[in-house]
Design a protein around this nucleic acid. Structure first.
Lengths: 349, 349
DNA sequence: GTCACCCGTGGGACCGCTCCCACGCGGCAT
DNA sequence: ATGCCGCGTGGGAGCGGTCCCACGGGTGAC
């Protein structure tokens, strides 16, 4: 790509590392046998195995990935793709925690994690070719939008792919998500149990499935309680604090008598709290607030937010496992895993 | 490593991608010429160049990284190492923002970013060998402690390395850091300008350079104002909220007349605020508080915290650039870059 | 005792690229 | 005309692994 025009770096410092040949020679065996030991083949005598293992230890031999992957056509690495535009939205533990889970899940299998932030649309579009060019064995994608076609392109190119969250209810690809609807439902049920009746909601961008699912949960809970989710109780947000403030402002204007709000993210909830305070309303006395994510913000908002926690790290780990499975046994079929959420009750509701 | 015992994945789907040979054949030139075009060598006639470029476009050719790096001994990828123990980092924009900067800095050079989270000490220790085994061209490290020797090992192994922050004032390796002392100084000057005179500080763990530097800045500011930084004005914290509370408690006990506090992190400042409130003191009326990091917490503390912002994304970008430079021109000498901080004034001081 | 078999083994043939050497060819000085 | 230079070029020789085929020697069946 553009690298072509750049000055070429030196060759790496010529501290030549021992090769498989060196190991074999030192162990007094052939390359084949040494290779077998390294790859755990059972068809090696105990004697040879011991000799090779000793040689490896003495020489500090580490296999050359490039050479290996040239012939095996595997790279032992997977990419985690994050549209850069989204990262600011979740400067939250979300990103980090999922990564930790993914990393933990991959480490056991000796896989490397390639982090790919797609800056703009052009770059994003090129990604499919890029990723499929024997660069990675599989792809994990975060924050996929409904209209995102990159996953489809990857599927066409036969690149194993697992998504964090789904694009729509009919997601054809394997993915892992939290029980968003269930979580939202529990949040609203908590508000209902607290005697609240005029419950509004601040949603995420409705072109995202997470946002829609959380809205669905909100609706279900109200319906089950015999209430109707009037349209003017629903204010669209965008997962940002400012969006939360604006949405709250709208809700207050339309429904002055509101006594509770379920926000589809803590960040929006924190915006809502700021706006409520500005309007002279007390939380939770006048208006109760529940957020979603149980992010660090939740604990630091005044009052601390009641929020729905998603098992982020486990989601990451599960994504890694699904992907590894898909890589190992092609065409296992795309599976979806839904992990349970948990309501963390604090002072805001 | 352990991968040896695992079941081996299939070979990648055999959608054989076009090779350089195919490109050369189609363009009617030799492999050498095709390679030259791809690598931007000037020694190619316009005619050949055009033919090759067309063939590349028609075939959708993308060079095989493994093959290339096998011979060049470069991988065109760098590792970002983060000790997993530093969960503290994860809860902040810190991590995400630096990554964004790093990613942006690397992208231009066609470099890949390998994310390596070291779970435990054993794994961390093995990292040096791991990273030096022609796996990456360079290493970026975050959250290095004073007693961390991994950087030294990497240097011995001739692996270009750049750190985020330094281990001590005598850091031999290239690194990028914020002007911690300067930032602290400005924070305290702001308190002085507000008429405060009995100014305490809550420090980070003093085995970390950041913490020491911020303490130094505090001292300098007081000294320049003709005040003395009595030892009982200095309370050691550990960058946690609870640590901040405890430190604040100690300060109040020793110095009931305190009228301001500079905390070396927002999280500690938020703890301090809680403690002040518990003691019946008002912020900023009775005691003004300034934090550090301008993290998301700062905006959500009540009252919102005045804080010192570090240019995280730029720090990431700078790290990437330093590393690229080190990779391209070996032995440029390890440089240090200090980026300016900025005081963000809110309501707490 | 002979033969078929199996197990462990060595090593050749690649994988797809870059590097570099040698070569052809036109233009310029001799 | 002859030589030399330098440019653009083709293609061989690896890079360090894995895969697989062929082979030696021990074993058991006949």
């Amino acid at each position: 790509m553009t690298a072509a025009e750049l000055p070429q770096p030196h060759r790496t410092a010529d501290v030549r590392r021992p090769t498989l040949n060196a190991v074999a020679a030192r162990a007094g065996v052939g390359r084949g046998t040494a290779s077998r030991v390294i790859n755990g083949s059972p068809k090696v005598s105990a004697r040879s195995r011991a000799a090779v293992e000793q040689a490896i230890a003495e020489l500090g031999y580490v296999p050359n990935r490039a050479a290996r992957s040239l012939v095996t056509r595997r790279t032992d690495s997977v990419a985690l793709v994050v549209p850069d535009a989204e990262t600011r939205l979740f400067s939250e533990p979300y990103f980090s925690e999922i990564i930790r889970g993914v990393s933990a899940g991959l480490a056991g299998a000796g896989m490397q994690l390639l982090l790919v932030l797609a800056r703009d649309a052009t770059e994003y579009a090129r990604l499919a070719t890029y990723l499929s060019a024997q660069r990675v064995d599989g792809v994990l994608m975060m924050a996929v939008h409904s209209d995102d076609t990159l996953p489809d392109r990857l599927e066409e190119l036969a690149v194993p792919t697992v998504l964090a969250g789904r694009r729509s209810a009919a997601e054809p690809l394997g993915h892992v998500r939290a029980d968003n609807a269930g979580g939202a439902r529990v949040a609203v049920e908590h508000l209902l149990a607290g005697g609240r009746r005029a419950i509004g909601t601040i949603t995420g961008p409705l072109d995202m499935d997470v946002a829609r699912a959380r809205l669905d949960g909100y609706r279900e809970a109200l319906r089950d309680a015999g209430l109707t989710a009037d349209e003017d109780l629903i204010a669209p947000g965008d997962f940002t604090e400012e969006g939360g403030r604006a949405a709250m402002r709208g809700l207050l204007r339309r429904r002055p008598g509101l006594d509770a709000v379920f926000a589809a993210s803590d960040v929006m909830a924190s915006g809502a709290v700021l706006e409520l305070r500005a309007a002279g309303l007390r939380v939770p006395h006048d208006v109760a607030v529940v957020g979603f994510d149980d992010s660090i913000v939740a604990r630091h908002v005044d009052p601390p937010l009641t929020s729905v926690r998603q098992p982020l790290q486990e989601m990451g780990r599960t994504m890694a496992n699904l992907l590894l499975d898909e890589i190992t046994h092609r065409g296992t079929g795309h599976r979806e895993v839904i992990l349970p959420t948990e309501l963390v009750v604090r002072e805001s509701a």
